[in-house]
Design a protein around this nucleic acid. Structure first.
Lengths: 337, 337
DNA sequence: CTCAAATGTTTGAGCGCTCAAACCGTAACG
DNA sequence: CGTTACGGTTTGAGCGCTCAAACATTTGAG
C-alpha cells in the first residue's frame, strides 16, 4: 500500500498523470476538477496511502487549524468532571471542523497565561483560544482583545456586558429555577438556597444561580426566602446547613450552587434526619457524586457548550469582523435514577 | 516593538547584519556562534519581537514536537478527576521538553482509535501518543507497534509481560497494602476487601489491588480473609457491603478498589452503624469524594506518571532503538484531613 | 468562421525554516 | 612561507503545500 517514502502531492500527481495543483484541488476544491480526473486522482491517493502534510499546509496557509485550551491545574474538586467533558466536546467538535485541540498547562497567573497564549498564537501553533473559568475580574479577555487574539470564552463576561468578545455560558438562573420548580412540584413548601459567599452582590456565577432560585421562590410566595452561604467545601457546607436546619424556619428542601455544597447539605440533612421531616437536596453540575448520593442535580450541557464555542470560533475565522456574540444555553435538571 | 509583518529568520538576520543560518544557530546551537555575534543577534530578535514559526520548523525537521492523548468520552464517573490531573501533568512536562499536547476525541472503538492515531502521526500533527486506560485485551499497543508508532502507555501491559513497549503505571498492590497497614496500625483486626468482579483471576488493575490487600492481610494472620465484589457503582457496592456486614464474620474495616466502591461501602457502613462497631472504609484514587466523606484513600501520583511518560517518550525520540522500559511508581495513602 | 467566455489544468513563486556543504579568514605546524 | 586545521559564517537546496496567474481546451454566441 504505502510506499517507502511517504507519498506527497507530487508523487501522487505523477502517479495519476496530473499536476501537483490538481491533486491539491481534488482535496480542497473538488468542484474545480473534472469528474474523470478526480476519480483518477482519488485512486492514486488511495493506492499510495497519501496523507497531506499538516505542517506544509500550515506554512502555506498561515493557519494552524488548531485551538488551544488550558489544562487546569489540580482542581478544587468535585466538578473536575465537567472539564473532562468539555475537553472531549472540544476535541470532537474540533475534529468535525478540521480543528485540533492543543492543551497548555495553566500558568502561574493571568499575565503569564496571556503570554503563553500569545506564544502559541504567534508561533503558529494555534489560531485561537478557548478561555475557561472566566470571572468578573478576569484580565485575560481584555488583554487578548488588545493582542488581536481570536478567542471564545466559556463563561459570561461578568460585569462587562459590553465586552466585545464571543462567549458561551450556561444559564445558571434557569438551572436553579428548574430545581425549585421540581421541588415545588414534589410538594416541598420551604425551599432554601445554599450558595457561596458574596452571592448577592456582584454579577457572578453564584449570584446568577441564586437569582434563579429567588425568582421562583419569591413568585410562589411561600414566606421569607431562607438562605445560607459557605465556601465550596463539603465540611463548611455541612456546618452551614446544620445551623440552617436548627432554625425555627428550617426548610424542607435546599437548592445548592454546586454538588460540593450539596454533598455537605446532604450530610447535614442526614444527621438531622431524626428531628423533623426529611430535607431534599438538589445539587449543581450533576457530577457522579450527586448521582451516587441519589440527589437531583442541575446538569450543564457541556458538550453543547463546547460545540458552540467551536461554532463561534469557526464563524469568526470566516468573518473576522462580525460583531461579538454571546450564547446562553439552558441546563437541565437531572433526577436521580 | 513588533513590525508590521511578523519577523522571520531573514528579517532578523538583515537587522543583525548576519545570515539567516546564523540566527537559526543562535537559537538552536548557541555554541556554534561567536559571543559578540550572538549578542547582536539576540538584540535583533528582541527588538523585532521575532517568534520562530513552528510549522516551518516542523516542515523542515519532519518533527511535530507534539504528542497526542485521548480526550475521554463521558466518564463513568468519580475518577474523572484523575484524567484532568494527567492532562495537566502532560502539558506541563511537555512544555519543559518542547512538546505540545494534542487532544483527540475518543473514537468508537479501538480500531478506530488506532486509525485516528495513525492519521495524527502521518499527517505530522503528532510524533507520538500516550495511551490511557489500557486493559488486558487492549488491541491498541500491538497495532501501534506494528505501525511503527511511538507511544507510551499509562497502564501496564496486563498479561503481556513481554510487550515491548514503554509504559508507566501505579503500583496498585503497594497502594492497598499501605491501606491495610494503616488500618492495622489503627487497631483494626478484620480487614475486608471490596473489589470488582473477576478480581481474582486474570492480571488486571483489580487483581493487582486485591493482591496488595491479600498479602498483608494474609501475613498478619487474622483469620480467613473476607472479601466482596461489585460493579463500579455506588449502589451495587452498598448492597454488597450491606450483605458483608450482616455476616457473622463481618469486618471492622474495608479496603476498596475505587472511591466509587468506597462511597457505597461508606453508606452501607453508616446504615449498619447502629449494630456493632463502626467500620472504617478506605478508598482508591483519592478523589474529592473520598475527601468529602472523610475517608482515607490511596492517591496515585498522577503528575509523576505524566512526567515519566514524557521522559520515556523524549528518551525514545533520541534513541529510537533502546529497549522498551516499564516504570512502576508507588502511590501514597492520603488520610482525611 | 471568428472571437470571447467558460471550464479545466499547469506553472511559478513563496510560506519560514533546517540541513549539508562550501566558504573564509586566522592560527598552528612543519 | 606553504600547508593543514579549525572556529565561525554563508550559501544552496529543499521540506510539502497553496496561492495567483498563466495556459490550454472546449463551447456558444455573433
Amino acid at each position: 500500500m504505502a510506499q517507502n517514502d511517504p507519498a506527497t502531492l507530487d508523487s501522487v500527481a505523477a502517479r495519476a498523470g496530473v499536476s501537483r495543483q490538481t491533486v491539491s484541488n481534488v482535496l480542497r476544491h473538488p468542484t474545480r476538477v473534472a469528474d474523470a480526473t478526480r476519480d483518477r486522482v482519488l485512486d492514486a491517493i488511495r493506492e499510495s496511502g497519501y496523507r497531506p502534510s499538516l505542517p506544509a499546509r500550515q506554512l502555506a496557509t498561515r493557519r494552524a487549524h488548531a485551538i488551544a485550551v488550558r489544562a487546569e491545574r489540580q482542581q478544587d474538586g468535585i466538578s473536575g468532571l465537567v472539564l473532562d467533558a468539555f475537553y472531549h466536546g472540544l476535541a470532537e467538535a474540533g475534529q468535525h471542523n478540521g480543528l485540533r485541540v492543543l492543551l497548555y498547562p495553566q500558568p502561574e497567573d493571568e499575565a503569564a497565561e496571556v503570554a503563553t497564549i500569545d506564544e502559541l498564537v504567534h508561533t503558529g501553533a494555534a489560531d485561537a483560544v478557548v478561555l475557561t473559568a472566566t470571572s468578573a475580574d478576569d484580565e485575560r479577555p481584555a488583554h487578548l482583545r488588545d493582542n488581536g487574539t481570536t478567542f471564545c470564552a466559556f463563561g459570561r463576561p461578568w460585569g462587562h456586558d459590553d465586552a466585545p468578545h464571543d462567549w458561551v455560558d450556561v444559564d445558571g438562573a434557569v438551572g436553579t429555577s428548574l430545581a425549585v420548580r421540581h421541588l415545588l412540584d414534589s410538594g416541598r413548601r420551604s425551599i432554601a438556597y445554599l450558595g457561596w459567599p458574596g452571592d448577592g452582590a456582584e454579577p457572578s456565577t453564584g449570584s446568577d444561580r441564586r437569582r434563579g432560585w429567588l425568582e421562583v421562590v419569591g413568585h410562589a410566595a411561600l414566606g421569607a426566602p431562607v438562605e445560607a452561604h459557605s465556601l465550596n467545601d463539603a465540611a463548611a457546607a455541612q456546618a452551614a446547613v446544620a445551623e440552617l436546619l436548627g432554625r425555627p424556619d428550617a426548610p424542607d428542601a435546599i437548592v445548592c450552587a454546586s454538588d460540593t455544597l450539596a454533598l455537605g447539605a446532604h450530610r447535614a440533612a442526614l444527621a438531622a434526619a431524626g428531628a423533623g421531616a426529611p430535607v431534599t437536596v438538589v445539587g449543581f453540575d450533576a457530577t457522579p457524586v450527586a448521582a451516587a448520593l441519589g440527589l437531583a442535580s442541575v446538569a450543564q450541557p457541556i458538550d453543547q457548550v463546547a460545540h458552540l464555542c467551536i461554532d463561534l470560533l469557526t464563524g469568526r475565522f470566516e468573518t473576522p469582523d462580525r460583531p461579538a456574540r454571546g450564547l446562553l444555553v439552558p441546563p437541565v435538571l437531572r433526577l436521580p435514577s
